[in-house]
Amino acid sequence: MKTLTVSVVTPDGPILEDTFEMVVCKAENGELGILPNHTPIIAPLVISAARLKRDGKTVKIAINGGFVEVNDNKVTILAQSAETPGNIDVQRARKAKERAERRLKTKKDDIDFRRAEYALRRAINRLDIIDER
């Protein structure tokens, strides 16, 4: 059976490189399922979990925005940061979530607000990945 070679790359180095049967990730206009022999594509990703499937098992990775590129059965996820469940610090994510929520309540100017919103989304995304495992 054909497989996909998946690599997740961030500015701080490659996070993961392995073969999978299917990749599901969330692009800006909806979920994107990638199977082998997919047509070459480039799509921006939102802050979400990417699911990599192999032998009935799913590996989840927290993606904090970026791109997915598919070409010749190679899937490259370019993310500003990405975490596998083992690398997520639950305590820190919880704290980040609380902090962001607090900041959203005391709304000041637009930039701070947007930043807090992103931080909250990232934190929720991280926690989701751990809980559902």
């Binding site: 206009n29 047509t39 070459p40 594509i41 480039i42 799509a43 921006p44 791109f67």
Partner: peptide, 14 residues
Amino acid sequence: YEFEPSKAEILESL
């Protein structure tokens, strides 16, 4: 390459 949703929009965030 196929671009999703469009080249211009990808450029915007890329």
